[in-house]
Each structure stands twice: as structure tokens, then as C-alpha cells.
Simulated assay, not measured.
Amino acid sequence: MRFHTRKWVKPEDLNPNESLFGGRLLQWIDEEAALYAIVQLENKRVVTKFMSEINFISSAKQGDIVEIGIVPTTFGKSSITLRCEVRNMVSRQPILTIEKLVMVNLDEEGNPAPHGKTKVEFVKDRVDRN
């Protein structure tokens, strides 16, 4: 699993229990999943279709730095399915897992569209082939 993004837990990210608000963490995950799908599918028109069970394992506190990891598990005709892990950067303690995040590739009219991708591509490889 590659951890692409780090977030610093600030006071505005806390719930009344003084731990990271779950909704804020899900916002960060949704954004990271969208960015990952946009880069992989080479299309800025990508939406979240589905998130499976969200497993909160532990919490993060103010001042913690959390890392968000995304890995693709399946390339569909018009979708990409991802798995997500979030952990504390310093302790490596897991905070959350989501087994299945489905992102859908859209055309200009907002309809699901085939993307033609079958495997992970890195930007450096796309540049090298041109």
C-alpha cells in the first residue's frame, strides 16, 4: 500500500470527544480517492459511486499526522475499485480501513463512460511513452 497523502489533525478537525471527527476523515478519503482515480483514468470527471463498510480501528488526536493509502483492486469497464487504509504516520497504528471504494468515470454529459484502463499506470511511464 502506498500512502500518498498526509493530513495534520488541527483543532477544527476535532469532534466533541477531542478526537478526529469521522466525517472530516471521510472527506479527506473521498478527495484522495477521487484524485487517485482522476490520475489513473486520465479524466477529471470522476465520481464516488460506493463505499463499503468503514472500519474505524482507532482515533487520531490533535497534532497527529495521518497518512491515507489507496490501492486499486479492480478496473471495471467504466469504474475503478480502490481499497483504503489510514494510519498514524508516527506510530503506524491503523486508524481506519475501507475495503471497497468504487469510483466511476464520466463523459461530458455526466454518464458512465468506458475508460479503457486495465492496470495501474504511473505518470512517469506516460511521459516516457510520448
Rank of each mutant, 00 (worst) to 15 (best):
V90E: 15
Y36Q: 08
E85P: 01
I57L: 14
E108L: 09
I95A: 00
L82R: 02
A34D: 02
F21T: 00
N17F: 09
K10L: 10
F122H: 14
K49G: 12
V86Y: 05
G63S: 02
R92L: 08
A37Y: 08
G116R: 06
I95C: 05
E109L: 12
T5G: 04
F21R: 01
V71S: 15
I57Q: 11
S78K: 08
K49C: 08
E108Q: 11
K7W: 07
Q27A: 13
A33D: 04
S91K: 12
V104W: 06
H4A: 13
R92M: 06
A113Y: 09
V104F: 06
T74C: 10
G22L: 02
V46W: 03
V9Y: 01
E121W: 12
P112E: 00
I65R: 09
E99C: 03
E67R: 10
V120W: 11
T48R: 06
Q40G: 04
T48Q: 11
E53F: 12
V86R: 06
K124H: 14
K7N: 08
S59R: 11
K44G: 02
K77S: 13
N17I: 07
V120C: 08
E42C: 10
T81K: 15
F50N: 14
G69Q: 09
Q62M: 13
E109N: 14
R83F: 12
V102Q: 10
I70Q: 08
I38T: 07
K124V: 11
S58Y: 00
E12F: 09
R24H: 06
R6E: 15
I80Y: 10
A37D: 02
S91T: 15
M89S: 15
T118A: 11
S59P: 01
I54R: 00
W8R: 14
V86W: 03
L82T: 02
I98Y: 05
E12H: 14
D64L: 06
A113K: 15
S59E: 06
L41G: 00
N111R: 14
D30M: 04
K77V: 09
R83T: 13
